[in-house]
């Protein structure tokens, strides 16, 4: 506790670093995964290729990926950009499938009624299919947010500053309080992001407040490394 009180400034600085590293992947992956998921669902062939690709990408461990990326994209090994890109890729890998599943969950009758009412494919997607798959997308984004916040810490072992640096520094100096502070702050940040998404979901999808949201058939998984 003494350590925490004496180092509130440091914890805050690392928290900000952590936010800057974790927010871009969360936002970018959503922006990319929606069209990609839509495309995956649209054609039989693209579905197989994209979803298999996403599944394989998701199986790639993060720390090795952070080491491999510089060789592929020419960044420096310790650049924070590697961490951001790696986590964005994971987010996409997970969300593409969620988007495809979410669009699948829209009742075929609803889709046909929309077409019958004169919606074009484009407007039907934006005004019917996307909002209706909202709850599924939200569940997916919550998983992405929590896992991204947790995974950012891994970058600390190669020197990319985040709350994870409290783990490596606490370990070097043998200060348990520092590691515990890092753990608590990371979990708190993950919960904060999660809460923000839930809140955004309530604001953007008020109808889900009246009707019980569909229980996701399975828990989505989070990877920790």
């Amino acid at each position: 506790m003494t350590w925490v009180l004496a180092n509130l400034g440091l914890i805050w600085a690392r928290t900000l670093d952590h936010v800057v590293l974790s927010l871009p992947p969360i936002v970018i992956c959503f922006v990319i995964a929606v069209p990609l998921g839509w495309f995956a669902r649209r054609y039989r062939v693209s579905r197989g290729i994209i979803l298999t690709g996403a599944g394989l990408l998701y199986a790639v461990p993060s720390l090795p990926l952070i080491f491999v990326l510089p060789a592929v994209i020419g960044t420096s090994l310790l650049s924070p950009v590697n961490v951001i890109i790696a986590l964005t890729l994971y987010g996409i890998a997970l969300m593409v499938r969620v988007v495809a599943d979410g669009l699948d969950s829209v009742d075929a009758d609803v889709r046909q009624s929309a077409s019958a009412m004169g919606y074009s494919t484009w407007s039907r997607f934006w005004q019917v299919e996307l909002p209706l798959s909202g709850p599924v997308l939200l569940a997916g984004m919550r998983v992405v947010a929590v896992s991204t916040v947790s995974l950012v810490t891994v970058g600390a072992v190669i020197g990319v500053q985040s709350l994870g640096s409290l783990f490596t520094d606490g370990f070097q100096r043998g200060i348990q309080a520092e590691i515990i502070a890092g753990l608590v702050a990371t979990v708190a940040l993950a919960l904060l992001f999660d809460g923000a998404l839930v809140l955004a979901g309530r604001v953007l999808m008020p109808w889900t407040r009246r009707v019980a949201p569909p229980k996701p058939s399975v828990p989505l998984e989070v990877s920790a490394a």
Binding site: S147, S150, T153, V154, A156, G182, T186, V222
Partner: peptide
């Protein structure tokens, strides 16, 4: 799930 493994480790 929210617990970073590096911290626990």
């Amino acid at each position: 799930r929210a617990i970073p493994t590096l911290g626990l480790l």
